[in-house]
Design a protein around this nucleic acid. Structure first.
Lengths: 213, 213, 213, 213
DNA sequence: TATGAATGAGTATTCATTCAT
DNA sequence: GATGAATGAATACTCATTCAT
């Protein structure tokens, strides 16, 4: 139904389809929100509806897979930056990459704030991200470039918040998030600030509370 | 189906019903997100489904009405604070009130990020909010308590972003937004910061771009 | 979409539709088994799919309603026959009516052997039927026209069995069940038979065991 | 996917697979009814789905094969019993075996009452069973142990009916069918009964009429 | 004007069957 | 011959919206 390079083996074709689907789904969700019908994703990927379900037994599972992939990328970035000399700069870079990822992939946040995020694999990955970012933050704190009272969890949460700040104008000004990221940096990378109120959150599940009931 | 005091006049009953509906809908959307069925709103308001549609020809219209009311409240708050002596403190108060409103009413953001927000009335109200906040910000800027490069639009956008930062932990820590609000203040109420990158956004429609297609 | 007498009131129309649906469903299930799509039932009743679900929130509920109606009729028949002088004759009449009901309404048995039968209301009605038939049987036993070792539960179970015996030829010979009913009578209405093996079953749920897992 | 001894020859493997499938399918259908997915049968047999379809071009064909095998067993039993001296006792034994087969293999009846039963091969086997049982019955009739007006077809039909009588309590009382079999014997093995009403059915296809449309 | 019954388009998911490897 | 990935028709159920009373 859709022209396609001849697959080398069923296995190869399957891998290809899985990739196709993940890409199509990420795009589709990005454009239309999580409510896009599974059928549209199938169409975009150029496969039949049944194929979507063969690869991802339910919409939730598909959403989880997307979230996992995105989280994995962030974790990778953070891990790489753990090696950098200038921890403060590394943290800035991580946040920049993180917000950019959210901006580029608008489905991410919506995908994260879903029952899919309740899946153990997703929670685990979130926890993993939290751990790495905590390390990143600790190093920066030790180097005295970031304020004392900021935690890795704060950083992770801020990613979403900063992106969200600019989201309403994302269409007209796709780079506006840089402005608010800089603003956040100004609040973050300061040493002589008064201690922030409210104890730092722990274990953010990145789960939209609306869905947790 | 629900006993009720006899209405004084048809007109009075209608006004009453409209109010009932708005309240019920605000609550319902707050608790369940914008996906709560119209039927549930009718039930909560103690009226029949048809009545909901008589007052609000479509779900979208209802959503718009809610957004309008909430925006109106924010505008009111901002206008009141325009009278304050300490403009910086006033701005802080406005932002606190704004984020709190978002935190308390989880539907607000979702309601705002919808085609309903495209309706002229809503856009107008958003513009009005922008105007008042701009004034508020200008005064603070003039008093030298807020950095030079911050606009009213920035402030309005930040409301959503700050709320969103804390949203993932809203369940467990309903006050966490205060932490991020304080962090934002630290970035905002500083005078000797380097100028923020990216030109300030104009005319944010507060519309989630995802929905604009 | 379907010609129909003008309804007098919404309420009247609803009652009418409920009846229409029940009838259509009974027929549809009778002809096609419980697997007929809900859509077909809607079509047969001349209503939209949604209407079926308004009246019966799930297929199961519809099935239960049908079972209930049929069971109720049987209970009524049994109760009426409790008044008869000749208890043996009354029992024969009841069984005749029962098997005939099953023969006429082929869906009955299938409907009964379903999770729908697990619903308390259905179980209750089955229990009620069991009670009345037990009384009927006891009277016949006391009058010495039915063998000593037969219980009301046996009778109820036999209804299904007798019907089933003739079911394979129901198409070609719709009255064949009379033959096997007579055969059962010959085994039943005898006094000098050896006691039946196996203790009499108690509390038949009329539930197809296949479904109980 | 399932380790297995290396096949001796393609041909041998096929035979083996066919057997595996038939067994797995019989079990699966027995436990879950005819609605078990083909995939589960493949899994149980330890082969891929495609293999099932290579052996049995359609689910119906598979069902037919099972029915055929079971019918064949009954025919075998009947043929063997044709040799017995006491024809009445032989008939009892046959019926006992028949009902027991149905009770033990809950899928049998369901399998039989299906379009699959329409297949010529199945009809032929049913006819063959009818013939043998007719002979069995005739002999018993001639020996004066069974009533005059009973035919082989009646006997075959009764198998299903007797089983069905006890089916609703099969879970709790797996042997209850013996009770109703005895009851049937009491009606059957009597000489001075009034002639049964309704002419004896001929050529039962053992097909549930519900499915024939 | 309020009611709530009817409508019907829309959605996730299942499963027999086909077919490329 | 076996495999298992892809297909796509089919189905129960939801919900915004309409409309007769």
């Amino acid at each position: 139904m859709v022209e396609r390079a001849a697959p080398q083996s069923p296995r190869a074709d399957m891998v290809r389809n899985r990739h196709l689907l993940l890409t199509a789904a990420t795009e589709a969700f990005a454009e239309g929100g999580v409510d896009v019908p599974m059928g549209e994703i199938a169409q975009r990927a150029g496969v039949a509806k049944g194929t979507v379900f063969r690869h991802f037994p339910s919409k939730d599972e598909l959403l989880a897979a997307i979230a996992l992939r995105l989280l994995g990328q962030l974790v990778g970035t953070a891990e790489r930056l753990l090696e950098a000399d200038d921890a403060g700069e590394a943290l800035r870079e991580f946040m920049t990459a993180g917000v950019q990822a959210l901006a580029a992939d608008r489905a991410f946040r919506e995908v994260i704030g879903r029952p899919s995020a309740q899946r153990p694999e997703v929670r685990d990955e979130i926890a993993r991200l939290g751990g790495v970012v905590e390390a990143l933050t600790t190093r920066a704190r030790e180097q005295g470039t970031v304020r004392d009272d900021i935690t890795g969890t704060d950083i992770v949460l801020l990613l979403g918040g900063i992106h969200q700040t600019a989201a309403p104008v994302l269409d007209q000004q796709p780079q506006a998030w840089r402005r608010y990221l800089a603003l956040a940096f100004d609040g973050l990378f300061t040493v002589d600030a008064r201690t922030l109120p409210h104890r730092p959150p722990t274990g953010p599940h990145l789960t939209d509370p609306r869905q947790s009931a």
